[in-house]
Design a protein around this nucleic acid. Structure first.
Lengths: 204, 204
DNA sequence: CAATGATTTGACCAACTGGTCAAACTCACG
DNA sequence: CGTGAGTTTGACCAGTTGGTCAAATCATTG
């Protein structure tokens, strides 16, 4: 238990190493499937040493989740009410897709939690996420009412964006096996752009 | 270990109860997160009694997976080369969506496995699933070349269908929290029909 | 109803797991 | 260099877990 003082050089390094290792381990085995020993080994520490920096396995997990959720929702927050609707949405899709490519472990960590019923995340989803979604769903609805994009259920539209983009991270094992040599991220941006453009471009 | 003879009445009942209980437990906690005791209790048996019917936790899991994959791929197999392309695809989407509603545990069980890197499924994906996907991707490509549906990367098209439909089962906890009182499956069929119709209807 | 095979169980085991603790070691700084 | 705080570790513990086994109970059928 390092004191409340400013973190020392060693504390900074080790806490970062632990979180990095925990992301690796938790995202590929889930919370219950991961052991403190695994994380410690991956971080290059002994188990008691790891527990000197974090009070428990759950504390590591929680800190990881807290940090994750914030950055995870940033792209949605960035959806600009004053922008050109279709371009805003397409940009959001591409940003989310890039996050799946660049931070697949974060995506899988989140997926692991939700698939298992979000036992440790229910509160934060019901509060933070729900508020943001309501706000952005109304924004989308406004654009539809103004005829600037095609009509579609705004929440389902958001779900579909999350689903399609995160699929490339969450189901990476399956996608890569089925794509063979081809990198899924070569064609994915084009595919999703086409999909949402055709779907949302206003029609007479 | 029941003999190789025809299963008795009791064997049939208990094996079925075990698989049903295991589906419940595995799909909501993953393989490592589930305990034999949990499954036994859910099946109304003692742990040693359960292990009288299945040699190990892994054996239960494998039998469950084997049964699952077959029914899981049936809708894709049913994609008919001689049908009307757009209607065939839309029907496939709806069938998959219904499976997400009617068999969400199966979907989550599968998702759990893939998210964690498909350690126990890699072989079957690389062989069975890959063959079927190649075949159907070519079918889709043929329809596109003939101008009967809009062009799009056929494998990504399949991925998107899986992703969008299974999302409602796999991320059920999140979707229901964000939808409030509204049942997600009320608007989902319409939303997906619209999406794929707009995307695939041939344009000049 | 006897007897034989199928079913069930309590007691048990070894391996693993999250976490503790006192002792040892290392480092920064006066 | 010495000294006190910060860091690391081996030994340990209690609870859980997958799995075994002999003995007991039950069901079937001759």
């Amino acid at each position: 238990m390092p004191a409340d003082r400013a973190p020392t050089r060693i504390q900074k390094k080790n806490r970062a190493a632990i979180l990095e290792a925990a992301l690796d381990v938790f995202s590929s085995h889930g919370f219950r499937g991961s052991t403190v020993d695994q994380i410690a080994k991956a971080a290059g520490l002994s188990k008691p040493n790891l527990l000197y920096y974090f009070p428990s396995k759950e504390a590591i997990f929680n800190e990881l989740m807290a940090g994750l959720l914030d950055t995870w929702l940033d792209p949605l927050r960035a959806l600009d009410p004053d922008g050109e609707p279709l371009e805003e949405i397409l940009a959001y899709v591409q940003r989310k897709l890039q996050m799946s490519r660049d931070f697949p472990r974060e995506s899988r960590l989140y997926a692991n939690e939700i698939v298992q019923g979000a036992p440790r995340l229910h509160d934060v989803i019901a509060s933070d996420l729900n508020g943001l979604v309501e706000e952005k769903a109304q924004l989308l609805q406004g654009w539809m009412d103004a005829g600037r994009i095609n009509r579609a259920h705004p929440k389902h539209l958001l779900f579909s964006i999350w689903s399609l983009t995160q699929h490339y991270a969450d189901f990476d094992a399956q996608v890569r096996t089925l794509m063979g040599d081809e990198d899924p991220f070569d064609a994915a941006p084009q595919y999703l752009e086409t999909l949402y453009r055709r779907m949302l471009t206003p029609q007479s």
